[in-house]
């Protein structure tokens, strides 16, 4: 019995040491993505990760001269798991927000995309019109103010679906939380299944996700309505997230992104995957 116990404990020690990753050096990193947010990142039917961020990660890591591995990770645990050390960086269409900056460190942004409402066609929202096409929430003009009240009147009392722990969820809670019912989903797939089935009246999501989606067979029943919204709760674009202690890694990513902007790689990738240029400029 004693021997058994000692050998079990010894085995556990060996296992725990085996799993201890070496710290400090960034010659080999693991990057997490969601794998369920096409065209940013998704899993194809053969189980392979693909998408804008998958190709971008390859390009950035080549520029940084590091070996890397990409792993899929459920969205709602993606930041805690980064802190826990499951991986070293996140590239999963994660917008840079003040709140997230308390938990992680971001590189410079590599893409930016407005958020917009999506509805089922012929479901009573098709003729929703506002005077402006875009709203910037950090500086709201009177016209934008009017557009916001149109939105809150239209969706008042309705159910709006959104992916959990996203900037869109945060926006809904802040701006429409009193007038609409918010339903939060673990994955975009489940959100769409419920939008299609009519369980929710509208969804709020990233334009970069929805524009290619609506041109696709799977999006033929959906429509985008209302203005595209940016800034404020929607953050300052999408960046690579790393642990707060990894300042050097963040700087490496920022430098590589700048290089990719300069030689046009980033914009080429964005047009390939989003059908419009959502990449970072300057």
């Amino acid at each position: 019995m004693k021997k058994l116990l000692i050998s079990v404990i010894a085995a556990l020690f060996v296992i725990s040491i085996a799993f201890t990753a070496s710290a400090g050096q960034y010659d080999k990193i693991t990057i997490a993505t969601e794998g369920a947010f096409a065209p940013w990142n998704f899993t194809d039917s053969s189980g392979q990760l693909d998408g804008f961020e998958i190709e971008l990660a390859k390009d950035l890591c080549k520029r940084m001269g590091v070996e890397y591995k990409m792993v899929p990770q459920a969205w709602d645990g993606i930041i805690p798991s980064l802190q826990a050390g499951k991986y070293d960086a996140i590239m999963a269409a994660m917008s840079i927000t003040e709140k997230r900056k308390n938990a992680v460190l971001f590189s410079r942004y590599y893409a930016a995309t407005p958020s917009i409402f999506i509805v089922l066609k012929n479901n009573g929202f098709d003729d929703l019109k506002t005077d402006v096409d875009a709203i910037t929430l950090d500086q709201v003009s009177p016209e934008e103010e009017a557009a916001m009240s149109v939105l809150s009147d239209t969706f008042g009392g309705k159910t709006i679906g959104v992916q959990a722990a996203t900037i869109q969820e945060r926006f809904l809670q802040q701006y429409l939380g009193k007038s609409v019912e918010i339903k939060s989903y673990d994955t975009q797939e489940n959100l769409e299944l419920d939008l299609q089935s009519g369980r929710i009246d509208a969804a709020l999501g990233a334009m970069s996700y929805w524009v290619p989606r609506l041109n696709d067979e799977k999006g033929k029943d959906f429509n985008m309505v209302g203005p595209g919204m940016t800034k404020g709760p929607f953050g300052e674009g999408v960046g690579v997230a790393v642990r707060q202690s990894d300042t050097e890694l963040a700087a490496m990513f920022s430098k590589a992104i700048n290089e990719a902007i300069a030689d046009g790689t980033l914009s080429k990738l964005a047009i390939k995957w989003f059908t419009f240029d959502a990449s970072a400029k300057e």
Binding site: S16, I17, F19, T20, A21, S22, A23, T30, A84, G85, K86, Y87
Partner: peptide, 12 residues
Amino acid sequence: NALVFGGSGFIN
């Protein structure tokens, strides 16, 4: 890990 082995690495 930090307590017992004095290591600072994350465990994966």
